[in-house]
Simulated assay, not measured.
Amino acid sequence: MSVQNLMNKVVVVTGGSAGLGEQICYEAAKKGAIVVVCARRINLIGKVKERCEELSGKPAFDYQLNVADPENVEHVFEKIQAEVGSIDVLVNNAGFGIFENFVDINMDLAKNMFEVNILGMMFFTQKTAIQMVEKGHGHIINIASMAGKMATAKSTVYSATKFAVLGFSNALRLELKPAGVSVTTVNPGPIHTEFFDKADPSGDYLSSIDRLVLDPNKLAKEIVNAMGTCKREINRPRAMEVAARFYTLFPHIGDFLAGGLFNKK
């Protein structure tokens, strides 16, 4: 499946009510996909669904989904199978972060971050992967983060969840490749979305790294263009990708970069 034949393919996007997830829905719809919008905020997903139908000229679907609730995940997955059909592309975009010093963070919040960012994603992915393996094709795209490649202060728990997403995705890629199923990780730096309304309520972080902040529309186009390919990773912005490579190859320099140039929280 290449980007040219996303036509009539079922593309499921979690966290699709706003931000990057919303833009991925629209870009997939422009390619003629049947888009399935999943998110907690039922007051927003209907609007995204309607816009997808306008862009694609095809039916779109919306389901209220709390990925931290395994029973809800199973219920929504079964409804998609019954009402839409088998999934061709799954984009695991749901997630959130809080930027606080670890000694100050509420551990209930930390637990919830793991439930949303990694455990819920794994549960939905397993159900989808079983179906894709049976069909012999499919594409799973996991939205990780540069925080999963290069941890910085005040992102201890968030970085831990995204390191887990990367490790999970890398192993899953190897497991599913023989079955014809691709796995891609997307590792963005800061994106100009409402993610930072919760992560950085003051707005100081985004303003301090303005030159590195990504446009969600451009990133969404790149992600949708990768659908149906065997692309391993998408890393943006490129400056952070280079820094992350330094972080791995030259740990002391990496600590300097992570603790200074790219640590503005």
Rank of each mutant, 00 (worst) to 15 (best):
A147H: 05
L212S: 09
V157Y: 06
M1T: 05
V10M: 00
E115R: 15
G189I: 01
I98S: 10
F77M: 02
K218H: 11
Q81T: 03
E54C: 11
S86G: 09
H137S: 15
G97S: 14
L174D: 07
T185C: 14
M107H: 14
K79Y: 01
E78L: 07
I130Y: 09
G85K: 02
N217Q: 14
E115T: 11
R232W: 08
V224Y: 00
I87M: 03
V224M: 03
K79P: 01
A164N: 07
E78K: 09
Q4T: 15
D204E: 12
V73I: 04
K149E: 08
K231N: 03
V116H: 07
K127D: 08
F77A: 02
K198P: 08
N263G: 09
D88R: 01
P237Y: 06
V13G: 02
I118E: 08
K30N: 11
N225H: 14
E233F: 04
I223L: 11
N263A: 13
V89Q: 00
F102I: 07
V35F: 00
L176N: 15
S56N: 05
V116G: 06
P70V: 14
E27Y: 05
E134I: 12
F250V: 15
I191L: 14
I98K: 05
L249S: 12
I130G: 12
F250G: 10
T248A: 13
F250R: 14
A39G: 08
R236K: 06
I118F: 09
A239W: 01
K149F: 06
M132P: 09
